[in-house]
Each structure stands twice: as C-alpha cells, then as structure tokens.
Amino acid sequence: MQVIDLRGVSCPTNFVKAKLALEELDNGTVARILLDDGEPVKNVPRSLKADGHRLIGLKQVEEGHYVLELEKIDE
C-alpha cells in the first residue's frame, strides 16, 4: 500500500504534495494519504476528488490524524 504522509503540512502545500506524489503512481493504484484534523481533512479530499481520483474511505486513527484511502485515476 502506497502511503503519502502529509501530517504537519498545511494547505495548500499538502494538496500540491499529494498531486506530486500521485503523479508517480500507476493508474488504479490505491493509496493512503495521512492528513491532519482541521482544514487539511476538510479541504484535501474534495480537491483530490475534483482532480478525478476516486475516494474510497476516510478513517480517524488513534493518534488523531486521518487516513484517506483513494484510487488514483488518470484523466
């Protein structure tokens, strides 16, 4: 499983870093993106959806951050 750790990275840098990391992956790859609570978890998922990726799920883990699971979709 590909993990993209964006904890401690604020908006909009986290979204741009996610885009760059996703560029490296093959179409259809499922990735986990680690996001801080607050603005990042509100903004990044919907921006990635608008970029055409398929959001699969979102879970908050014990440490407090969120794990967004998505499938990379090439346009």
């Binding site: 978890v41 509100k42 998922p45 919907r46 959001l55 699969i56 799920g57 979102l58 879970k59 969120y66």
Partner: peptide, 12 residues
C-alpha cells in the same frame, strides 16, 4: 452512501 464519513467531517 459508503459510510466514509467525509460529509460529517466536512460539515462545519
């Protein structure tokens, strides 16, 4: 709905 919870998280 796939119960992902994103909507509840996004709802300020």
């Amino acid at each position: 709905c796939i119960s992902c919870g994103l909507c509840a998280k996004s709802c300020v």
